[in-house]
């Protein structure tokens, strides 16, 4: 029995698409049997996984702090919904336009990122996010203001609305996840990590820091835009409060809890946070206290999140391996010497 475990392990590590797709199929089958409420939650997890996967590229891999992704997510939802409502455009066209548009908008965020880093970048993106939120509320002629608007849902293969958006989201998220995961295992992933860990050394080794930051912003914005477009069809009702700062912080919690710089974490984080959020739905106060405590607790005691623990279980032994960052290695950690070599 040891052999299959070994091969599952290395297949997972090597970036094979078989396992994620198999998991997606299982999730699809389970999803179709769920009642509408649970399916709604599951779909949220799926959509947020896409969003957090993108956010992870930006914050986890590239070390760029952004507070604008809830706003980008919101723009995706609004553009998708409003194009259908105002212009009568079909959903796929609206979704595509929103994704492309948000990618463009998010790419512009690299401009502050070229000059700023750390908290300064965080605050600059925060100001942008608050400004977007302000526009959503105050440009009522187009956005219907603070009250929000009814966004059309979708129906495919004669399924009901929730099932339709669930399957659509699952397919797109799986594809998106595989692509992003593929990307971070190539030289792009190494460049992301390099500008995070030591951007001066990265540049001296030929990494174009500007281009790399731009790609990280574009990619994460694209994920946010697509996720937003899916979310508008899921919610059926789009309002500014779904995309405020509170949501942004929950997204951050998802990324941190799952594990910054790990693709697996992008799925675990949303699942746990959304589960907890449902448990605490009746008390906003407790929700904030518990999520606040979770964030502090993880930063202090489990800074790499949950995903590395799972990798460790998959690896089957406690070796010192690279748990975050790109995994270009086919057999990472299995052949490494276990003794810590001593110099001097």
């Amino acid at each position: 029995m040891a052999v299959p475990v070994q091969s599952i392990r290395s297949a997972w590590r090597s970036g094979s698409w078989v396992y994620p797709v198999a998991i997606a199929v299982v999730v699809a089958l389970i999803g179709m049997t769920l009642n509408p409420y649970l399916l709604f939650l599951l779909t949220r997890v799926v959509i947020f996984s896409m969003l957090v996967a993108g956010l992870n590229v930006l914050m986890g891999y590239s070390g760029l702090l952004s507070f604008a992704h809830a706003a980008l997510f919101g723009i995706g939802a609004y553009v998708t919904g409003l194009m259908q409502v105002h212009l009568g455009v079909p959903y796929p066209v609206a979704l595509l336009t929103a994704t492309v548009g948000v990618t463009g908008a998010g790419t512009l965020l690299v401009l502050p990122a070229l000059r700023l880093s750390g908290i300064h970048l965080a605050i600059a993106t925060l100001a942008v996010a608050q400004a977007v939120h302000w526009v959503l509320i105050n440009w009522s002629a187009v956005t219907f203001g603070a009250g929000g608007f009814r966004a059309p849902s979708i129906a495919i293969f004669g399924l009901n609305a929730t099932q339709s958006i669930f399957l659509t989201s699952l397919v797109l998220t799986t594809i998106g996840y595989l692509m992003v995961r593929q990307l971070v295992r190539t030289s792009f992933g190494r460049k992301f990590v390099a500008i995070r860990d030591n951007s001066v050394a990265a540049a001296a080794n030929g990494v174009n820091v500007t281009a790399t930051k731009t790609i990280a912003f574009a990619l994460s914005a694209g994920c946010a835009g697509l996720a937003g477009g899916l979310y508008s069809a899921l919610l059926g009702f789009v309002a500014p409060e779904s995309f405020n700062l509170e949501q942004m912080i929950l997204m951050k919690v998802m990324a941190v809890v799952g594990g910054l710089g790990t693709m697996l974490g992008s799925m675990i984080g949303p699942a746990l946070v959304i589960f907890l959020q449902e448990q605490l739905r009746d008390s906003q106060g407790w929700l904030e206290i518990i999520f606040g405590a979770v964030l502090i607790g993880f930063v202090l005691f489990l800074p790499k999140g949950i995903a590395p623990l799972i990798y460790r279980v998959l690896a089957g032994k406690r070796t010192e391996t690279v748990e975050t960052g790109p995994r270009t290695g086919q057999k990472v950690g299995l052949s490494a010497p276990t003794d810590r070599a001593v110099e001097n």
């Binding site: 891999y61 030289s187 190494r190 790609i215 391996t321 690279v322 960052g325 290695g329």
Partner: peptide, 30 residues
């Protein structure tokens, strides 16, 4: 300076080869 802590030693060395891999962004994505 120190090596990038988020990468293995060999990945750190591979960084030295990065400037122009033979594949572009889309190739890497798919």
């Amino acid at each position: 300076s120190l090596l990038c802590s988020g990468m293995s030693v060999v990945e750190n060395v591979m960084l030295g080869l990065e400037p122009q891999p033979a594949y572009g962004f889309w190739g890497a994505l798919v």
